[in-house]
Design a protein around this nucleic acid. Structure first.
Length: 112
DNA sequence: TTACTGACCTTTT
DNA sequence: AAAAAGGCCAGTA
């Protein structure tokens, strides 16, 4: 019986779907995506997945930030910070000089 | 295959 | 209240 059980897609697939569902000009956090994916504690994996699949799925990783309101990407991709700032500004999201975004304003809580 | 790491978050002290 | 440590789930090597 395939139906109620409904095998959940791989976390990666779900994360991709959720990130793609993020409205334009809005940002969300890893925890939110993970929670919508079904694992509120799997926030780390969300970032880990993006780390290897960002360009593959064209995921707007720029809209996915940490709880602090900024990209917590590790050293190597720090160049992504100014990049994110540019991308978000193009969407109308105000990025602070410290690469911080107002989650209180643009923080997309997601829909259930 | 197993083990380790990982763009985090939550909880405890 | 703040700081520190751990836990979690999945993907990659």
């Amino acid at each position: 019986m395939a139906g109620l059980e409904e095998m959940e897609k791989n976390f990666y697939q779900k994360v991709v779907e959720i990130i793609k569902k993020i409205p334009y000009g809005r940002v969300t956090t890893y925890g939110t995506v993970a929670a919508l994916a079904g694992s509120p504690r799997a926030a780390r994996i969300v970032g880990g997945i993006l780390n290897f699949s960002t360009d593959k799925e064209d995921l707007p990783w720029q809209r996915v930030i940490n709880r602090d309101g900024y990209i917590s990407i590790r050293g190597g991709l720090i160049d992504a910070k100014p990049l994110q700032k540019t991308l978000l500004e193009q969407e109308g999201v105000e990025v602070s000089k410290d690469f911080m975004v107002d989650l209180s304003k643009y923080g997309w809580v997601g829909e259930m």
